[in-house]
Design a protein around this nucleic acid. Sequence first.
DNA 1: TCGGATACGGAGCAGAAACTCCGATTGTAC
DNA 2: GTACAATCGGAGTTTCTGCTCCGTATCCGA
Lengths: 198, 198
Amino acid sequence: MTTTSSGKPLRADALRNRAKVLAAAEDVFAAQGTSASTEEVARRAGVGIGTVFRHFPTKESLLEAVLVALLDRLAGEARELASAADPGAAFFGFFARVVSQASTKQAVTEALAEAGVDAREATGRTGPDVKDAIGTLLERAQRAGAVRPDVGPAEVTALLAGISFAAGRAGGSDDVLRIAFDGLRPRDGDAGQPAPRG
Amino acid sequence: MTTTSSGKPLRADALRNRAKVLAAAEDVFAAQGTSASTEEVARRAGVGIGTVFRHFPTKESLLEAVLVALLDRLAGEARELASAADPGAAFFGFFARVVSQASTKQAVTEALAEAGVDAREATGRTGPDVKDAIGTLLERAQRAGAVRPDVGPAEVTALLAGISFAAGRAGGSDDVLRIAFDGLRPRDGDAGQPAPRG
DNA sequence: TCGGATACGGAGCAGAAACTCCGATTGTAC
DNA sequence: GTACAATCGGAGTTTCTGCTCCGTATCCGA
């Protein structure tokens, strides 16, 4: 990503501008959704439109870069939490954090939805990355008895996208989140708090 | 809706064309999402663009008419089920049916999302209508002990929109639906089947 | 049947947004 | 410091889409 297609390293200003564009795009798409114009991104980044299109030859490629960055960050958060003391709290905390982000950042929901469209990823590696990180979080929570054993990363990611969508539109995101959490917990006896048993 | 703004009844061909346009719009928006062009709708309906815009002076108004029709139909289904013998099955059946529709019709999700944006409805009556119908369904299921008592129509509608969104993108909609259902059921003892007790 | 009102069709207009092109500018190797 | 290549900026091009306008066709009451 820091070299041109012909292999040469990018010039210093080019590198700087690329970062500015990416950051601006993230802001703009978060605030206005992915239908925001490329010109708006350029304005926010303080560069010309030509510069935006040189770094990202298509609006779609810009969007993809933003989503990849977002998903990478989420994956990072998930990996950090993977070694937490309380696996159940880690899992549900991550879930809640993502949903709360999504309620102000439209792009998060779209990123998750895109990550959910598995198998055929033009994106390449990042879809799986998040799913892997979530998978680890999920597996540990399941081993600790905090999450029902019969769900996989795919379902959790899809649910995450759905609840994020709901949170972004309707007001009572906390209540919806509570329903989802209860649906994710095991059904018998030791349900209430994430407490390992056995 | 069958008269002009000046109160006179519509001419026969006008009435016919209006119906054709509405049906075509439903098809097109369902298949391609709400960003489909008005011209596409006109083509599908077999009329000129001018005709579309005479009946629906704005694309937004056309879209609204489609969503209203969709929501009205859903509300109707919900009302029919309101007198079913098994309130729990009625509620969950309705939920599942809507989600399954949404997986092929993008417009359903958007309609639900719009219905969720409560209080400030330019749409007027239909938002509340569905919510009322869902509310009845919900209340009966709750009284029968099939659904937890601490959720309201607003949360259910939001959840419905979210799960529909997830179903439309990811593949495993059945699993996600199962999680949502379990989250909606009461947590203690007599949870499993919708069996009234007391 | 006939006349006037109503509705139709689609060319054309206006605005927006993605993308291109090239003269001006800036970074960097020597 | 200089020269050349890489990069920048933004006016301009293209394409698309919502919407208007008006000559033509259709309906319907008398």
